[in-house]
Design a protein around this nucleic acid. Sequence first.
DNA 1: TTTGGGGATATTA
DNA 2: TAATATCCCCAAA
Length: 211
Amino acid sequence: MSCYYDNSSSSSPSSKWSRLDDQLFERALVLFPEESPDKWEKIARYVPGKSWSEVKLHYEDLVHDLVEIDSGRVELPGYGDELGSGWGGESGASQVCFGSKGKDRETTERRKGIPWTEEEHRLFLIGLQRYGKGDWRSISRNAVVSRTPTQVASHAQKYFLRLNSMKKDKKRCSIHDITMADPENSAMNPTKPFQNQRSPSPYPPHFGFPM
DNA sequence: TTTGGGGATATTA
DNA sequence: TAATATCCCCAAA
């Protein structure tokens, strides 16, 4: 008598990313720079049961989500879960120091401004989801290591400004604006038909745009 | 030339 | 410190 299902292994069969998998994945993603040639293999080691190709595909899927967010097409992905992953990692101080302190901008060169790379922006968005809006310090320390909290805050300011502008601009039709903002709360969820009905109002609690 | 994106700094709470 | 306001550079319209 064998087992009915082969669910014994500690890892999922394949195309199912649990919440834990996702957390491990994001944590590892933040951990490694993009310069690693075998980045995906390294990350895959942090996500048991996933091959590097699966991890890579998952990452591309995530990027796709982020791009949609950036296009102002979706409200915002799931923000419901808080993570308590206490990790003990610290990174080297790669903070860039400027020669001029800012007061001396008379004849010396002005602050030039280092443009954000796509990777930094992705890390920023990931950090935003992991630590929440406002915790620029944590985001800077754990996600976007190459930026100071002030820089992260500045970037966030522009980012949300742009998001709001897009949303206001797209306030044309409403019915087509309804989209599955939440990948895990949307149509595909065979394991849990009814997830969370915590809100008495039919409107989802968007996490707050005070601007 | 004007406009506005993008980053840094200044000010405020 | 975070939130907000303003400044500055520069590229596109």
